[in-house]
Design a protein around this nucleic acid. Structure first.
Lengths: 196, 196, 196, 196
DNA sequence: ACATAAGCGAGACGGTACGTCTCGTCTTCTG
DNA sequence: CAGAAGACGAGACGTACCGTCTCGCTTATGT
């Protein structure tokens, strides 16, 4: 998050948005190429053709640069689906998440998740940037589904909303990315079946 | 993994097992206290009362020290329960896992999980130490449960065996440890219900 | 000699002359206190309140730091005497040299002399700093003395100019500093007597 | 100096003289090849095919090994001349010293002298091994010369005995080895002339 | 129009940790 | 026991980044 976000600044040379972008792009490139550990501020500055101070003027730490670099990148999840068919919507969302885990974004998410442990700001930003919306939407889908009688009325909504992401995340982080393409359907079939 | 693993060495002063232990203990302590990133070889050496060379004589890098530190660590899983009542056994295991997350081992697991991404050896050791036995046991419980008709015969065994750990892990890593004490029961009630 | 000597650098923060001085002073102090061998880059950095990189940015090795430390050191020769009385002038110079050996500069000269053997740059700088002026002046005194008939006309000027420093140096380095106060007079009386 | 010099040892396996020699030879070789600074105990041990403890059992430090290595080597100065002709004897001795300074021995003496500054044991041993005898002999020659009227009766014997070695040493250490072959004769002619 | 104030690239700065090296000591097994 | 091998604690080596701090520009703005 940019240190100065408001528009209260008026005098002096304004910050160049070119540099913002150059820095974030460089950070992202290097992150993908070498992972979080191989990422150095010196490297970002060099790659972006920018002085280190120009980075630190905008962000307080390596972690924050990466937060924003990654945040700007991953948020292109497409629209949250809402077709009226809850199960189809959930499968869509699971699949979008699954695709995120695969591809280059997966490595980035993993790297990011790894750093969350140590940097609470990162954790929150991670949440805000590409978890919160999805979570909210899934919850609404489930709630509506329960209300419409598509899931049993005594369902544990909280868990039901969480089970898909949880299984995908578990597969990704704890089972070395064992993510078959039909996993979304499997999950729905097993844990969100139609009431008999 | 120790640099010299065979028993071909015979001459000269043998490596001191005291030092092995002192180093690994120090590494583990510091890992829990400060996380992987806050862990320095210099710190380990100082805490273990050992020269840096004594560490590098045994392991090639920080990662390798940690792998072995982890390997030497006996994760207190408690006994793997087997009472004949599948659901009770699963609740027991979920609870043990939940306690692990809450205790000192939890911090350690988080720290390791973060590093797994970058170090495959670490990932494997992590699996061996914290995960493999439990996973195997849970799967057996589920398989037996299905065989005995305690779960529907068309259950997705793989997912059923995974859903509990997945939800706990998700709560722990992605929801900042939102782990109510009755979560095991909730999970079983929602996802592993008795067949009607 | 400083790594960057030209004035081609223009951009970036300029090197601080304060640090140059702090480093060289620290080096010189430690050299006198502990000798060349007891001199560590880490020690210099600590004493100068400077990071090690700041030293290595300027010099490539310990030897080069010392060379320059020595170069910056103004050896207090006192004025080169020229009273017209050759023998009195020589006694003065011998005494100044003797005092140099006895004082802090003596320890320094010994330390440097020891190291000269291994580092030719050091040898030359040592010569420039401690020796060259004195040598030239003594030679001139002797030459004039011979010209004026104060020494026999067939004198070996080279040796005559050298005998005093040689004896003092020999006493200092080979006889543990056996340097009685009247040694200058003894030398003149024995080796530079008035022609009969 | 060997740590155990007496012959009070009787029990157990006796020290191998082969090893003494192997160690000293290795030390000397390496000293000549790389100088005192490039000399490591590890290197000596390896070159001699000997354990480090075997060296430390005999000598307390690197310096002492070198003392003995060098001592054993240089003492082959030949007989101290005593022909009855004082000046010829002195020229002989000066020349022997001069030859020592030239050759490979010179580098060794310089290396040795350099270390004397820091190691008093070295200084004393240096003295004992290849200075003391010569000095005593020169002094006797001079004393006899004065007694026999070959030098003026009011000569400063101490200085007269010292002037040759002092000039040679000065040339060697302070003038980069400016040692012409007739320097011995020059010295005698200038500073030890026949009384008129 | 021009002063002002901030932005900027470059890179120096005090630190900290890296992985390597040698010191002089210690500990084992072999002869 | 001596000896070869080599582990050991200590601590310096020279390198790489960290996040901060100057420098001498450059670039809008607001007077």
């Amino acid at each position: 998050m940019s240190i100065v976000t408001g528009d209260e600044r008026r005098v002096g040379r304004p910050r160049s948005e070119d540099r913002d972008r150059a820095i974030l792009d460089a950070a992202l490139d290097l992150l993908v190429e070498q992972g979080f550990a191989g990422l150095s501020m010196e490297g970002i500055a060099a790659r972006a053709g920018v002085g280190k101070a120009t980075i630190y003027r905008r962000w307080k730490s390596k972690a924050e640069v990466v937060v924003e670099a990654l945040g700007g990148h991953v948020c292109q999840l497409g629209e949250l689906p809402d077709t009226g068919d809850v199960r189809r919507d959930l499968v869509s969302m699971y699949r979008a998440l699954l695709e995120t885990f695969k591809g280059a974004d997966g490595a980035m998410m993993a790297a990011f998740a790894a750093e969350k442990v140590r940097h609470h700001e990162l954790r929150d930003e991670f949440d805000r940037t590409f978890v919160a919306d999805r979570r909210r939407h899934m919850r609404q889908l489930i709630e509506r589904g329960v209300a419409e009688g598509r899931f049993p009325p005594d369902s544990n909504i909280e868990l039901l909303a969480e089970v898909g992401p949880a299984l995908l995340w578990h597969r990704f982080t704890m089972r070395h990315g064992l993510l078959p393409d039909d996993l979304p359907e499997q999950i729905v079939a097993q844990f969100l079946p139609e009431p008999t």
